[in-house]
């Protein structure tokens, strides 16, 4: 049976009827039409679907939409403000922290969480923080550079 849920998605409240089994990632992508977060696996390993729910980075393929009822959901589309890229987005761009771009929204969203909790991470802490996000293109080195750069910018 469908249930009504209310979610504030990137600052905009919305209400939808959803099946309980609808995954949050499918709610965001197929119901709300925000396709920035991606599905890269079904075993909660790759992190391409990472979004923030009430400020907490989660893998939205491992959460049902009903669990997000009443919560604030932030996706990659909600990161830039007034047309200005977020510092982390800018850092990924400047440091060539992406190639095919498929993992990138998840990488950026988890970076946000890493830096919120530890504004000046060491390289080891950055790599540990990226543990739940797979990238097949970059070998991670430019992603690590991007996180470092974003940290330096945010700290400054």
């Amino acid at each position: 049976m469908k249930r009504e849920i209310s979610v504030t998605l990137n600052g905009k409240p919305r209400t939808d009827e959803v099946e309980p089994r609808l995954l949050l990632i499918h709610y965001i992508r197929d119901v709300a039409g925000l396709t920035g977060a991606h599905v890269g696996c079904e075993t909660s390993i790759c992190g391409a679907c990472t979004v923030a729910v009430d400020g907490i980075a989660v893998k939205s393929c491992t959460m049902f939409a009903v669990q997000a009822d009443g919560k604030n959901v932030l996706t990659i589309e909600g990161l830039a403000s007034n047309g200005n890229l977020h510092t982390i987005q800018e850092a990924f761009w400047n440091e060539h922290g992406l190639q095919c771009g498929f993992c990138t929204p998840g990488m950026i969203m988890v970076t946000k969480q890493i830096l919120e909790r530890n504004p000046n991470p060491t390289e080891e802490e950055i790599r540990h923080g990226l543990e739940g996000n797979l990238c097949r293109c970059t070998g991670y080195q430019h992603i690590v550079n991007a996180v470092k750069t974003a940290a330096a910018k945010t700290g400054a």
């Binding site: 920035g36 990659i76 830039a80 761009w93 400047n94 060539h96 992406l98 771009g101 498929f102 929204p105």
Partner: peptide, 21 residues
């Protein structure tokens, strides 16, 4: 030079096959 592909990719506005409706 930083890539010209990137603005759409870092903002989640690129269109992959699954994004097509």
């Amino acid at each position: 030079i930083r890539r010209r592909e990137d603005p759409r990719l870092i903002t989640g506005t690129a269109t992959y096959v699954e994004d097509i409706q």
